[in-house]
């Protein structure tokens, strides 16, 4: 589904990504963990075209992403959902308006159809009663669930999550992770940057450890946590578990 080959990204002097390769297959849930500043978020932002690539290539469904062709880039983005750490809901729009904006404005879908989809998705995440609320009236966990639904409303084939629970109060982390587990069970392809080790253990099909812009180790969750190979991962796990 997504394939990164020899990808590099440089910010002024520092190498955020250093000749990194990774493949995400259909229906896979890949969790990326690692210390902050290891390039995890950068990787995700490159896949979605929020940042431009400096070296290598990223393939989506076998086709290399062309960052300078905005039409092709848009087609790729239409099939991906992106969830931000800080939700980035539109504060001047109600929940329903947040959900309906892109499908009606970008994909020119029939508002009636989109509204039905929005309602059924909101029901799924348990927020139907907030349909007319404005984002400022929602808790962090509710905001993030709405943000997930906003991305799902475009019916993406892949969901990208950039530390979706890092800005949440501890008691709200679970409600968001539960929604993500649901999606994983439904067979959605997901690429998730996270600090939630327990979630990675339970929901991921594969866990990837990144450090200094490179993938140090990747494995099934079971092997990853019980039998780490590299010293760097051993050290990291000893700190976070």
């Amino acid at each position: 589904m997504i394939k990164l080959v020899d990808v590099s990204k440089v910010y002024s002097d520092t190498k955020a990504l250093d000749h990194l390769s990774l493949e995400v297959k259909p229906n896979e849930v890949v969790c990326i963990v690692g210390p902050s500043g290891s390039g995890k978020s950068t990787l995700l932002r490159l896949v979605n075209g929020l940042e431009l690539i400096d070296g290598g290539a990223i393939y989506f469904k076998g086709q290399a992403i062309d960052y300078h062709n905005s039409k092709l880039m848009a087609e790729v983005r239409n099939q991906m959902g992106f969830v931000f750490q800080n939700f980035n809901l539109f504060p001047h729009l109600s929940v329903l308006e947040n959900l309906m904006l892109a499908p009606t404005q970008v994909l020119k879908e029939d508002p009636k159809v989109v509204k039905e989809r929005a309602i059924s998705l909101l029901k799924q995440v348990g927020l139907l009663d907030k349909i007319d609320a404005y984002p400022n009236k929602l808790s962090g966990g509710q905001k993030q669930r709405v943000a997930i639904v906003r991305a799902l409303c475009l019916r993406p084939e892949v969901m990208l999550f950039d530390e979706p629970t890092s800005a949440l109060d501890p008691e709200m982390v679970k409600e968001v992770l539960d929604v993500m587990k649901d999606l994983a069970q439904q067979g959605l392809t997901m690429l998730i940057v996270t600090h939630e080790m327990k979630f990675a253990q339970e929901a991921a099909s594969r866990v990837v450890f990144m450090d200094q812009g490179q993938i140090v180790e990747e494995n099934t969750p079971k092997q990853f946590f019980s039998n780490p190979q590299s010293d760097r991962l051993k050290e990291f796990l000893s700190k976070v578990l």
Binding site: F90, L101, A151, L154
Partner: peptide, 8 residues
């Protein structure tokens, strides 16, 4: 960024 990711 959110707008970009939604393809506006």
């Amino acid at each position: 960024e959110a707008s970009t990711s939604l393809n506006l």
